[in-house]
Design a protein around this nucleic acid. Structure first.
Lengths: 342, 342
DNA sequence: ACGGACTGTGCAAACGTTTTTACAACGAAT
DNA sequence: ATTCGTTGTAAAAACGTTTGCACAGTCCGT
C-alpha cells in the first residue's frame, strides 16, 4: 500500500509537505507541488480514508437509516426515487452514503448507537413516520446531526422533511367530492404511522367540511402492500352499503384494490372511483391509470440530504420542519362519467 | 467522546485490557471482563470505527457500485429487491454497505480508485452488464475483491453472478412458439449490454431451432424505459407485415409496449402476445397480467454478497461464474385463445 | 525447592494521516 | 548592520485502536 511517506521519500520532502500538497495548502511552492503531484500520479496514490477520518474527526459519510422491517420499503417503488434524491446531493457535496437498517428491538437503538458513538458517520437520514419512534428519541437526545424524512408526533421540533399529508388527503377527498361522490371510503396504512394518521385526518376534515357522513366501517387499516389493498377492498365491498369512491393510502395498495375490484366485476371509475398517494411511475400505467397525489419523492430525499449536510457543516439550517409540496395527478380512475348518488 | 482510555482509567486497567475485553480475548479474567463491561455500559462506550479500521486494515464495509447513469436503475423496480438481497447478507455478516455511483468518464475510474486505493471498503459489488466495462477492467487488474452482478464479455473469468439470459430468452421465445406463434419480434435494450445481447441471442436461437424466420425489422433496440417500449412498439406495428407476438427485454419496457398496443386498439394477448423479463411485482397487476421471466432478483443480490464476503475473508470461493436460475411466469399476456397464423 | 506451563495484565509500537510549532532563508525596511 | 515580515519546509504530537512481547504470579509435576 502506497502511503504519504512513500511519496515523501521519493519526492525528497517530508510527509507533512505531501499532506499539504494534497489539501492545497497555500504556502507550498509551485515546484514542490508539481513534483509531489507527479509522483502521486505515478504511484496512483490515494489517501487512506480511515487515517484521515481518525485525525480529522469527520468521515464524510452519511447514513440512510431504515427502521425495522425494511422489507416493506424496498418493495415500495418510491424508495428508489428517494435514494436518487439523497445520493445526488450527497455525491455533489463529497459525502459517501451508508445504507443501514436498524433491526432488532433493543438492538434497534444499539445499532444506531454504534453509528453515533462509534463516529461511523457524520449524520443520519432517518426514514420513519412512526408516531413514537425510539430511534428519533435517541437521536434527539444525543445531539447528533440527523434529519427525519417523515414526521414524529412525539418530537415535532426536530429537523425533518415531510409533506403536508393532511392537506394532501383533504385535496384528494375534495377532488372525489367535486366529482359528485358522497360516499367515500378510506384504505389506510398502519395506525402507528403519522402518515396514516395525517391522511386519515385530512380525509375526515374534507368530509366534515362538505357535511358528508363519516362511516367508520368504510375506513380500513392495513399495510403498504398489495394484499392489504385487496383485503381492505373486499371488506368494504362486502358491506350492505358501499361507498362509490375510495381514497387509498399508497399506490401499491391501490393496485391491490384495483385488482380486487376488477375481479369482482366492478368498473373503475364508473362503479368505484380511486385516488391514492405517492404517484409511483406505474400508477399511470395501470388500467385505468390511477389518480395519485405526487409527493415529490425526489425532492423529499434531495431536501433532506441538503439540510443534513448543512447541519453537519454547522451552517445555519433554515427551518426545523420542511414541507415538500404535493400535487394531485388526476387520471382516469377518478373521472367517472356518471355518478351514482346516495 | 468516550474512548478506550477513559474506560481503562475508570476500571483501573490498561487500555489493552479493555481492548481485549471488547474483542473477547480468551486470557481475560471473568472479574476484569465484568468490571470493564459494566463501565462500558455505563458510559455508553462504542469503539471508534475509524481507529479500529486503521490498525486492523479492514473496514467491514462493502460498496455497491452503480455505473454511470444510475438514474435508470433507481427507476427500475427490481433494484429494491436486489438491495434487499445484498443487505440481508451483509448485515448478517457484520458488514456495512456503501451505496456509490461512478460518475464522470475518466472520473469513473478515479472514483473507484478512491475506494480501492484509499482502503475505503473491503470489497465491491459492481452492477453492470456493459460489454466492455472499464471499471471491470480496472478492478480485475487491481486484485481487489469484487463481484459483478451481470457479466462482462471482455472478462469472462472474474467472480460474477448472473442469469443464463440466453437460455431465458430461448425459453420465453419457445413458449410463444408453443402457443402457435410463428412471427415473433424482439424489443431489446442497449446493444452495449451483455444482457441485451444474450437475450437477443437466445431469441434468435429459438427461432432457428424451430426453423422460423428471423426478421431484422422486428428487432428493435431501446432503453430500459417505458417510452422506449412505446416507441419500439409503434415502430414494429407500423410495418406492413407485423409479428403476432413480442419478446420484451424488461417489464417496464413491456408496460410501455402494452400501453401503446392498447392505445392503438390491439388486444393483448389475442392480437399480440407478450413475454418479458424480470418479473417485477407489478407485472401481474397489469391488465392483462404480463408473462415474465423471473430472474431471482433477490437471489442475485444475496448470492453476490455472499460470494464477495467469502472472497474478502479469503475463504475458498466456489465458482467464478455463478448462475441464478430463472423461471417463466406464464400469465394472460401470452395465452392467446386463438392464434393468427402466418 | 525448582523448572516449566499457564494465566492475566501492562507497555509500547504501529496504523496513515493532519496540524501545531519551529525554524531557516530571503528580501525589504529601518 | 539589524530588525522584521514573508515564504517554504520539517519535526513531532495527536487521533483511538490493536497486538506482539514481556513479565509477574500461580499451579503443577518432579
Amino acid at each position: 500500500m502506497v502511503t504519504i511517506k512513500d511519496i515523501a521519500k521519493l519526492a525528497g520532502v517530508s510527509p507533512s509537505t505531501v499532506s499539504r500538497v494534497v489539501s492545497n495548502h497555500p504556502r507550498i511552492s509551485l515546484d514542490t507541488s508539481r513534483k509531489v503531484k507527479q509522483i502521486m500520479e505515478e504511484l496512483g496514490y490515494h489517501p487512506n480514508i480511515m487515517a484521515k477520518s481518525l485525525v480529522s474527526k469527520t468521515t464524510q459519510t452519511l447514513a440512510i437509516l431504515l427502521p425495522r422491517p425494511a422489507e416493506e420499503l424496498f418493495q415500495n417503488f418510491f424508495f428508489g426515487e428517494l435514494l436518487r434524491g439523497i445520493l445526488t446531493v450527497a455525491n455533489r457535496s463529497g459525502y459517501d452514503t451508508l445504507l443501514t437498517t436498524a433491526t432488532g428491538e433493543h438492538d434497534e437503538i444499539e445499532s444506531v448507537a454504534r453509528l453515533v458513538r462509534g463516529r461511523r458517520v457524520d449524520g443520519i437520514i432517518l426514514l420513519s413516520s412512526r408516531v413514537n419512534d425510539p430511534i428519533v428519541a435517541y437521536l434527539a437526545q444525543s445531539e447528533f446531526p440527523f434529519v427525519l424524512i417523515g414526521s414524529c408526533q412525539a418530537h415535532p421540533d426536530i429537523l425533518s422533511v415531510d409533506n403536508d399529508n393532511t392537506q394532501a388527503a383533504f385535496d384528494a377527498t375534495q377532488h372525489l367530492i367535486a366529482q359528485g361522490h358522497e360516499r367515500i371510503g378510506f384504505v389506510s396504512g398502519p395506525a402507528n404511522l403519522t402518515v396514516s394518521n395525517d391522511r386519515l385526518h385530512g380525509y375526515q376534515k374534507a368530509l366534515e367540511a362538505y357535511r358528508l357522513p363519516i362511516r367508520s366501517e368504510w375506513i380500513v387499516e392495513g399495510e403498504f402492500l398489495q394484499e392489504s389493498g385487496y383485503r381492505a377492498m373486499s371488506l368494504i365491498m362486502s358491506l350492505p352499503e358501499r361507498p362509490t369512491a375510495l381514497v387509498v393510502i399508497d399506490d401499491v395498495v391501490a393496485f391491490g384494490v384495483l385488482r380486487g375490484l376488477t375481479e369482482l366485476g366492478y368498473k373503475v371509475p364508473d362503479d368505484i372511483s380511486l385516488v391514492s398517494f405517492n404517484n409511483i411511475a406505474l400508477s399511470e400505467l395501470a388500467s385505468p391509470p390511477i389518480s395519485s397525489i405526487d409527493i415529490g419523492t425526489y425532492q423529499l430525499g434531495y431536501t433532506a440530504a441538503q439540510a443534513l449536510i448543512r447541519d453537519v457543516q454547522e451552517q445555519p439550517v433554515q427551518t426545523a420542519r420542511m414541507v415538500i409540496p404535493h400535487r394531485l395527478m388526476i387520471r382516469e380512475s377518478s373521472l367517472s362519467t356518471m355518478i351514482k348518488k346516495g
